[in-house]
Amino acid sequence: MAAGRVDLRVDLAGLSLANPVLAASGTFGYGTEYADLVEVSKLGGIVTKGITLAPREGNPPPRICETPAGMLNAIGLQNPGVDAFVRDKMPALRELGVPVIVNIAGETVADYVALAAQLSECDGIAALELNLSCPNVKQGGMHFGIDCELTQTVVAAVREVTELLLITKLSPNVTDIAEIGQAAGDGGSDILSLINTLLGMTIDIQQRRPVLANVTGGLSGPAIQPVALRMVWELAQAVDLPIIGMGGITSAVDALQFIMAGATAIAVGTANFVAPGVTGCIIKDIETFCEEQGIARIADLVGAAHAEV
């Protein structure tokens, strides 16, 4: 098969992506920060850093530290607030030429509803990602995403006020990811994304205290890839909604595993910090893999590993 003949397009509940590789929320800013280092227009899409109604200053430092094959973060949703986002960030995002997914977070159901209503009036947004899984804020965040009833309630409330595609971002810090995903679907979510970070911590034994000022943080990076993959696998068996898989992806091998586990698209997060060009490499290597395997459409590989089990 000649180069460039693989159809990398995927469809997420009607949202067409040129390829299945997204930049994950919180790891790609507002789309312009990496413009010098990354061909942003070649991405399948980008997901913006979580936005809240009011500006948030975030958690005290230290906010991050390295762990084996991973990192912990407790940023605490530092962001300029939705008004500044729409005014200052959206104009450049519209010019990127790729689908823009806006991640939103709230402390209450009313926060999510207000954010969704306001952003529904804003041009250039392909979908909203409901962050029900941030482990680093005291109110809201993961509090919603670890409870089926609350998940369904917040998704349903947002569904009432927006026509935008809704993605629900799930927390891995639950016993049964499938029932949370089903609850999001019952609430009206069009797409599910997972996983957010795993709750973790580390201690400085010289100082005899936690390294992070927030004590706990979210673990990301290659260390979590097998856990994330297992959760995508389980969710894909339980729901029919399209899935965006993420968690520790650093290569096309990782990405293809998520696709074969049932993810229609994948997102690259922490790896962007280390290798800003990694998304481009993943897209190219997925294409090469498909050529070598005689796969005409990447979409044909979605969930492929389930057939053999």
Binding site: G26, G29, Y34
Partner: peptide, 8 residues
């Protein structure tokens, strides 16, 4: 490069 807000 200013994206992750980790080093504040």
């Amino acid at each position: 490069v200013g994206v992750c807000l980790g080093c504040v």
